[in-house]
Amino acid sequence: MSEAAPPAERIGLARIFKAFFVLGATSFGGGVVAYLREALVVRERWLDDRTFVEGLELAQMLPGLNATNMSVYVGERLRGAPGALVACLGMMLPGTIVVMTLGVLLAENAKAWDVSSVLLGVGSAAVGLLLQTTWRLAKPVILDAFDVAIAAATFAGVSLLRLPLPLVLLVIAPIAIGCRRPRGATPTGAGAATTAGDGDAGGHS
């Protein structure tokens, strides 16, 4: 099944929009990836597992949300630019309607309604969810001491030292990528990366 050929018939834009609208309306709590795989690989069979994983790798590497990046990637594969547009709109529309309805009602009635107690619990649960997600994502990614050092340095730069994010990215990304550079290759223009040695710099901290 994972070797299924790409669909031969042209998939209608309305069908793409509908599939992503349903995804956008039913996925909750940041676990969009699982919903995407279920819908796109298992149910619709628009993608095989390998294409899905490759798209996910790309979506995670690029800036932006996994959910919208994957919509663009899959939509583009199915129907080019119009496919990417309708997939992304379908994914965003239901949540936008909900969040704007709640947000506007709340902003206009801020004095009359006190929902701060409800939002306190909602936000607290969301922090728990986010920490659990971080843990789940970290398991396959944090493999040695160097990975721990990169994650810790990033966290410290943003959260403790409160440095501007562009600065943190510009310093840490070249070091992190440079130390994982393919064997035999020399990093171009990443001077800082040469200090930490090749390949697995296990004890670097």
């Binding site: 940041g30 949540g95 969040v99 909602v122």
Partner: peptide
């Protein structure tokens, strides 16, 4: 941000609010 968690779909649609 908390409000945004009550909406389905991508996590950051709350930027609209």
């Amino acid at each position: 941000y908390s409000l945004g968690q009550l909406a389905p779909g991508p996590n950051m649609l709350m930027v609209a609010v």
